[in-house]
Computed example of a mutant assay.
Amino acid sequence: MPVRQPLPTAAAVVQRSAALAVLLAALPLQAQLFEPPAIDPGQLTPASPTAPAADNPAQSQALQQLRSQADSVQRPPNLAAQRDANWLLGLLALHGLGIPIDAPAAQIRFQAAQRLGHPMASAGLAWCAIDGCGLPPNPPAARPWIAQLRKADAARAIYLEWLLAARMAPLRVGQADGRNNRTSSAITGVPVPEKALLQQAARAGSPQAQLELGLAEVAQGQYQTAYGLFRSASHRSPAAAANAQMIQERYGVTPSGSMGMNRPTPPAASQRWLEMARRYHRGDGVPANYTEAIRLYQQAAASGHPEAKRMLELIYSRPAPGGGIDIGWMQQLANIDLSRPQFSINNLGGAQPFLRDPTPLYDLVPAEWRNAALR
């Protein structure tokens, strides 16, 4: 028969409990499961603990102040400061500004801001429904948030309504035009539905809609129109500003509305050199000779011929693995006609592509946080 252990006496139980209390008291404070005290923003100093993701003391202190305000347990609470801090922390987490990108955390912050009555929080929740914010997207769930957003920012609400329609539209093969109220972007390769809705958002002042319409115009080779749309959005959209600059540099579009008119007419000699370069490049009536073609392109470019300059930029944009000229790339470029207004360097992959902002909420991030990411 197994031997039964005697039950501990009451004195033994008390003695063990006392020993356990002594051990717990000896543990470091951080090992004990206590709720951390709230931090008073006024008590923060440069020596206060910093957030791991902050790279500079000023930004670190600002983040700690935001977290303290957002998670405040003070009585009575400052609800306006708590609401605004949750909204801003959501934007920072969504875009990885000052802290690592954390879309699920951003959505939680947006929800908190919405409960506290932030007028723009519905924009964040609509975007998270459309995009998913780290979870499977649920586009139909964006509709009530978009309806709520119309009271605070009608232009953005219309744009998000268009974006919702674009995400839910079935993928169609081929391109359509404005005659059936659809436009297609070669930048994305995806048909864009409800062009009229996008135009309505752009007229209402949505920089995101102006940017999207500009990209659609680029896809159709309408660089002057695209440039005007990008310029209109550039004061609130960094991507639109960059796109306007790229169009100006690549296609000679100017703010005055001219396109390529600021370039002098190439002299007859440079035009002849360009034509000879093309013949050697293509092997048109002469044996193909890439060395001679490049020499003639260089001669035409030195005389100010813009097409020769663009061809040389393309040739040198993809060097061979060991350096020098990539023969395969030269063969691909042989039949490119750089004089066509529809030609896009971007389509060849030899230049920086046109840009979009990270999210439709990026322009809502305060400038000091966006600029800090560029430093």
Rank of each mutant, 00 (worst) to 15 (best):
R236G: 01
R179T: 15
A219T: 13
A233E: 05
P238W: 10
E249W: 10
P255A: 09
P238E: 06
L198H: 06
E212R: 08
E212M: 11
T225Y: 04
S185M: 14
A176L: 07
V218S: 03
A202S: 06
Q222R: 11
M246Q: 12
A239N: 04
V218G: 02
A196L: 11
V253R: 07
V173A: 15
L213F: 10
T254D: 11
N181L: 02
Q210W: 01
A202K: 03
Q224I: 05
R167K: 10
Y251H: 09
P207L: 02
L213A: 10
T183N: 00
E212L: 11
R182I: 14
S258C: 09
Q222T: 02
V190H: 13
S237W: 02
M168E: 15
T225Q: 13
L229H: 14
A239C: 03
G252F: 10
A244W: 03
A201E: 01
G257W: 13
M259R: 09
L171S: 04
A186C: 08
S232I: 00
A169V: 08
G221A: 09
A219V: 08
E217S: 10
A186F: 15
Q222H: 13
L213T: 04
G260T: 11
S234Y: 11
P191C: 00
R172D: 07
Y227G: 06
R236P: 02
E194P: 07
Q245P: 06
P207C: 02
A196S: 07
G178H: 14
A239I: 11
M168Y: 05
P191F: 00
Y251L: 00
R182Y: 15
N180D: 15
N180I: 13
A244E: 03
R182L: 10
T254H: 15
Y227A: 14
A233H: 03
